[in-house]
Write a protein that binds this DNA or RNA. Structure first.
Length: 220
DNA sequence: AAAACGGGGGC
DNA sequence: GCCCCAGTTTT
């Protein structure tokens, strides 16, 4: 018990330090310049199955034209689609985005709700997106589990779970609350630079001493 | 639990 | 050409 608590404490400490040497992920980048929950919500919806750089450019293009629910609602679906192209699923996302804005304006006075259950009702918003808005947009405690967090937490043996949702609930049980908000960012950084889904660079990994090396061959 | 969604970029 | 990418929804 004490060993595990100490383990995660050491891991977080190392990753905090190491992250200084790495390129910051898109959402971290955004959070430094603009913590508007709405922009974070939109950018996160756009980021689904899409690389950071593409997402960044797409959201910039969109926000230049419309950066509030009211403004985006006035755009046609095709206009939104052409602005956010070429993110993956751009048609579906354009449709979802407009519907999200309509709901925000009609039900929430144009504001993004800071409640997990309410966020989950929005089309195209799942647990990962909702929790990211909670943590990054509002600075409230939440645990955002994407493929990186799910993969790495299992690889190092901190949890043993099949799905990202299971991972989220397991982490809510055992991860010290002081790390909830930042754990996603730290593990995504590690995942992008070292602990890749395929062929992780274990010899260069700063937390290698704390890793059980489970699922190194392939774990998603 | 697994498939479908959908397009660009890397190798 | 084939595989990958800060997932969500439907079957």
């Amino acid at each position: 018990m004490e060993v595990k608590a100490d383990k995660i404490h050491r891991i977080v400490e190392i990753l905090r330090r190491e992250k200084e040497n790495w390129n910051v992920p898109i959402v971290t980048l955004m959070s430094q310049t603009d913590r508007d929950p709405f922009k974070i919500l939109v950018a996160t919806v756009l980021s689904l199955r899409t690389k950071d750089e593409v997402t960044a450019k797409a959201s910039e293009r969109l926000f230049k034209v419309a950066d509030t629910p009211e403004k985006i609602l006035k755009l046609k679906e095709e206009e939104i689609a052409s602005l956010i192209y070429p993110v993956g699923f751009y048609r579906r996302k354009a449709r979802n985005l407009k519907e999200i804005c309509r709901i925000l304006v009609e039900k929430y006075g144009g504001k993004v709700p800071d409640d997990l259950e309410e966020l989950l009702k929005l089309p195209g918003v799942g647990r990962k997106t909702a929790n990211l808005v909670i943590t990054l947009g509002f600075g409230k405690p939440g645990i955002c589990v994407d493929t990186h967090v799910h993969r790495i937490m299992n690889r190092i043996g901190y949890v043993e779970t099949k799905t990202p949702e299971e991972t989220e609930f397991a982490l809510r049980e055992k991860l010290p609350k002081e790390y909830w908000i930042e754990i996603n960012d730290l593990l995504v950084s590690l995942g992008q630079h070292i602990c890749h889904p395929v062929s992780p660079k274990c010899s260069q990994c700063p937390i290698e001493p704390y890793c059980d090396k489970r699922g190194v061959k392939r774990s998603r």
